[in-house]
Amino acid sequence: MPSETPQAEVGPTGCPHRSGPHSAKGSLEKGSPEDKEAKEPLWIRPDAPSRCTWQLGRPASESPHHHTAPAKSPKILPDILKKIGDTPMVRINKIGKKFGLKCELLAKCEFFNAGGSVKDRISLRMIEDAERDGTLKPGDTIIEPTSGNTGIGLALAAAVRGYRCIIVMPEKMSSEKVDVLRALGAEIVRTPTNARFDSPESHVGVAWRLKNEIPNSHILDQYRNASNPLAHYDTTADEILQQCDGKLDMLVASVGTGGTITGIARKLKEKCPGCRIIGVDPEGSILAEPEELNQTEQTTYEVEGIGYDFIPTVLDRTVVDKWFKSNDEEAFTFARMLIAQEGLLCGGSAGSTVAVAVKAAQELQEGQRCVVILPDSVRNYMTKFLSDRWMLQKGFLKEEDLTEKKPWWWHLRVQELGLSAPLTVLPTITCGHTIEILREKGFDQAPVVDEAGVILGMVTLGNMLSSLLAGKVQPSDQVGKVIYKQFKQIRLTDTLGRLSHILEMDHFALVV
């Protein structure tokens, strides 16, 4: 994948999101292997301009796509893939009243899908469409860049269908997702969380590099694949309309690839034109409109599966009536509230959605109805927002919020430890010299600072030695090549209790 991002070429006709291997024109390309080798690009942008032909009021008969309808489940399912879809609609009884809503608040519980998330729908649909058009064949390999849930859905379907599955996901995604993927037989590649989507090191860039190296491999490409919004247009939206008897006044959905909100909203605009569509985008993402909503100094966020630093091709923002931004604290607070007060075992993005819903639905009156999409299960986040310690460490809970008995030293300040200034190293000294210094002084790690004293990161003896043994660096290389740029900081005025929580999850903390 090139470091400079080429513009994806656009073909003359058809839909841009065809499933299957992508040609340089962004659509299915038939021909000899030699032709494909000559024409197939190194990668295709996940934010390529959409060429979708959908228009409100256009006859369904003019759609270029294969459409399906929700099917009634048999008493005995032939395999677990038949437990994807037909998820329950559940009334939220307490939270709406707590925040003064007059309307009825309903939750579409997508964590009841077989793999635990709304992404099971698009995973199965992308595979079925690729099999139907002859792209996927027995023994082929599926590769997908994902925040985890699409990966789980694909790995689940691949396990049943017999495909090899490789999932490329950023490091910030939970260990629970990784464990589930491994249990399903998927191979996992992790990428830096802070890598831009168009960087060769991003999950998108690495996935395309693997595709170019592995024979008979395919990126189904949830960011561009029409099967993504079509899955929701054909099934999720129809289920909502049936469950609500066609009567709903507002739908609120958090947005990642945009397939969920695009597919549902398009069908609702056709069948229930008075329904307002509300999009939820986390602070630090750029999906919301108008652009002024996205202006923030924050560039990272903890909530998973929603928000991006690019506009995915499948996201149709014209069908969203209003956007709201959400933050991590309210997302996790509301997710825990949904679990504790409503018994809905949902993930953090569901918290984002409901946090926005109780604001947006203030305009609705008694007798009206708001539906929220709860995308995934708490299963993926047992060591994250479900953990009091994690919430404390991230600053989303305060010590006084917890009532468990603490040891005698818990409320003492870090400054009472009488710490001395640490050994520091410059980023320009060599790895070999740094190892000598650390061994001589008896230290395992040291902060790396520039000549102005600005902290650049941390270097550890173990990481340097393993990097040297693996051949990633040489003793003569500058130590700046092996620094940890993500590390926890703590102030002298913070409590030892807070430091204790940090050290339970990290090997060190830097006192500043």
Rank of each mutant, 00 (worst) to 15 (best):
P2W: 09
P2L: 14
T5R: 10
T5H: 07
G11R: 10
C15Y: 11
S19G: 10
H22E: 15
H22P: 03
S27A: 13
E29L: 12
S32D: 04
P33W: 10
K36Y: 10
K36L: 13
E37Q: 13
A38L: 12
E40G: 15
P41L: 13
P41N: 11
W43E: 05
D47I: 04
P49N: 08
R51A: 03
R51L: 04
W54P: 06
Q55R: 15
Q55F: 06
L56W: 09
L56S: 10
G57C: 12
A60R: 11
H66Y: 15
H67V: 14
T68H: 15
I76K: 13
L77G: 07
P78G: 12
I80S: 07
I84G: 08
M89I: 10
M89P: 03
V90M: 04
R91E: 10
G96N: 11
K97T: 06
K98M: 14
K102Y: 04
L105Y: 03
F111W: 05
S117L: 03
S123T: 06
L124Y: 10
R125M: 06
D129G: 03
R132W: 04
R132I: 07
I142P: 02
I143L: 07
E144Y: 02
P145H: 00
I152F: 05
G153E: 01
G153Q: 01
L156Q: 01
A157S: 14
A158R: 02
V160E: 09
I166N: 07
E171L: 02
S174T: 03
S175R: 04
S175W: 08
K177N: 02
D179V: 05
D179P: 05
D179K: 04
D179L: 04
D179G: 09
A186D: 01
A186W: 00
I188C: 02
F197L: 07
F197G: 05
S199Q: 08
S202G: 07
G205I: 07
L210E: 01
N225I: 00
A226V: 09
S227I: 07
P229H: 00
A231F: 03
D234N: 11
C244P: 01
C244M: 07
G246H: 08
D249I: 01
M250E: 01
L251E: 04
L251H: 04
V252C: 10
V252H: 09
G259A: 03
R266E: 08
K267R: 09
K271F: 15
K271C: 12
P273R: 08
